[in-house]
Structures are given as C-alpha cells and as structure tokens.
Simulated scan of single mutants.
Amino acid sequence: MYRGFNVTLDSDDFASDLVVGKAVHGAIKNIFRETLDPYLRKDGILDATKMQANWFPQVQADVFISHAHKDEDLAIALAGWLYKSFELFSFIDSCAWGHSNALLKAIDKEYCYNANSQTYDYDKRNYSTSHVHIMLATALTRMMDNCECLFFLNTPASITVEETVRDQGQTLSPWIYHELAMSQLLRPKKKTRENRFNKYGGKLEESLEKSDLQIIHRVDLSHLNTMEVDSLIEWRDACQNQKGLQALDVLYELRPPRQDNRI
C-alpha cells in the first residue's frame, strides 16, 4: 500500500454509479466449493492453504475499499465511479470472496456437530472459528498490501459518533478495526505500475455486526488523508486524459502526504 484516505460520504453519493459498480464486480461469479472433500489430505487433516486460496483468493486491484457491511452498496457505487471516471479497479471483499460463514458452517457440520445431542461442541466451534477468521484476516492484510491505495468509507455505520474526536473514532466492526490497524502498520510501498484486474464474485458478510453481541474498538485515523465528496469531484475534474494508475498520481498531488509524515 502506498497511500491511504479517510473518505466521508453520504449513503446517496454516487448512487447513479451503483449499476456500473455491480456490472464491473459481478461480471463473473466465483464458484466456491460446498464440501470439504477437495481440502482433505490423505492423513485426514484439512489443508488451510487450499481453503484460503479458494474462499479468499488474492485478486488484482488498484484501490482497497474498507467499509461497513451496511455500506456495501455505497462501496460498490464508489467502485463504479472510480472505474467510470479513471478506469481504476477496486477491491470489495463482498464482491470478490466467499462467505466466511458458509465455510465455517461446512467445517462445523462435519467436525463440531453431535448428532445424538443435536448440539455443537463449544471448544471445537471456537477452534474452527479461529482458523477461518485468521485465514480471512491474513487474506485481507495481503490484499491491502497488494493494492496501491486505500479508501476507508467513514460513515455512521463504520464509525460511532460517541467520543469521536479529530483523527480518532470507535467502531463496532472487528473487521474495520483490523483493516485500519493494518493500514497503520503496513510499511508504505513504492508505487507499482502495472494494469491489474481480476473478476469478482461471491458473498461475504460481517456476522458480528448482525448479532446481539457488540464489542467496540477504538481506531486511529490520523495516518489517513481526509476527503469528502467535493474532494473526489475535484480529483475527477483535475484529470485530463489520465486514467488508471496515472489518475492516482493526480490524487496524490492534490492531496499530498501530511506534514507529520503520515500517508
């Protein structure tokens, strides 16, 4: 990752580009395996490397869009606008990867369920969940590192308003917490210059955001340049014939790194 931006948008911003975003990211759906047989080694152990490659594959993209599950349409609309305006391809996990809960369900049904009592073993469920979530977290970090630019969608669904101060906030999403923390820890990379694109499909949801359990995380946004919709429009207007990664160069000139050496 080379640069990161804290983007404040309303739910209806770029709504007209939602169709474009869905067309770009839904061109070809990935086919995710419903059974565990392809991942089972001869010794009876599941191969996590094969599971991660199938459920959370690394795809080629220029911009990593970090967003709350409730803002999925906004993220897809922004991705459509980025493609239409600059021919930039975005990574959105829900458009590219399989549903982590489906993988968990398959594992738990095979290894954690007791047919006699019709219950799931608590310890085995914790063990299976830790494996799937660490695969997902690792894949997210790798994707973020591979993308040149990060756009974090700062909305009421992703950052809570209580005790929020400049450059800091709180989130109920463990995945947003993870992505923002990793974006701060990843070492800035030199810009890569190759046209990159892969096809997207599948479905991933943030299960904890839908449950009754709520755990809040304090997040630091000080390492991200702030942008609002006017900044995005200014960026588009400043681009002449620049497309793709060249358009990102224009953005970097318009929004230079902060003087405190943050990205």
Rank of each mutant, 00 (worst) to 15 (best):
M182F: 03
P156R: 12
L150A: 02
N154Y: 09
D12T: 11
L248G: 00
L78F: 07
F86N: 06
A48Q: 08
S66N: 14
R125M: 14
K29P: 01
Q184H: 12
Q242S: 09
A79H: 03
V19M: 05
I134G: 00
Y177A: 15
D10C: 11
N261W: 14
N101G: 11
N261Y: 13
S66M: 01
L78G: 03
D71R: 05
R142H: 14
N114P: 07
M227F: 07
T8W: 03
I216Q: 06
A238K: 09
K190Y: 09
C95L: 01
Y83F: 15
A61W: 12
V161R: 14
F197Q: 13
M144R: 09
D220Q: 04
L232A: 07
R258E: 12
N195A: 13
D220R: 00
A75W: 00
I263M: 04
A68C: 12
M135W: 11
W81V: 00
E206G: 08
Q58G: 08
L251I: 09
G44N: 07
S16I: 04
V63M: 06
L251D: 02
L204E: 04
E205M: 04
L180P: 12
Y252I: 07
V165F: 06
N146Q: 11
V250C: 02
V20F: 01
H133D: 08
E110Q: 15
D13E: 07
E179K: 01
L40Q: 12
E253N: 13
Y177V: 00
Y39G: 00
L36F: 08
N54C: 05
S183L: 09
V219N: 10
K50L: 13
M135F: 09
D230G: 02
I92A: 00
L232N: 10
T138R: 14
W175C: 10
S158A: 15
V24D: 00
Q118E: 15
S100K: 02
V20H: 04
A96G: 01
Y122T: 05
I76V: 15
S173Y: 05
S85M: 10
S231D: 13
Q118H: 11
D145N: 15
E110F: 03
F86R: 05
I159H: 07
S130K: 08
L140P: 08
Q168D: 11
Q170W: 14
G21I: 10
S100P: 14
N198V: 06
I176W: 00
W235V: 10
D17N: 10
D47G: 07
P57H: 06
G244I: 08
L74E: 05
L36G: 00
G244L: 13
P156G: 04
P38Y: 03
L40D: 07
Y127E: 15
V219W: 12
R41Y: 00
S183E: 04
M1F: 12
K124N: 02
N198Y: 07
D145K: 15
F152R: 01
H25G: 01
Y83N: 15
F56C: 02
R236N: 07
K70H: 10
P174W: 05
D237G: 04
Y83H: 15
V250R: 06
L221F: 12
M135R: 03
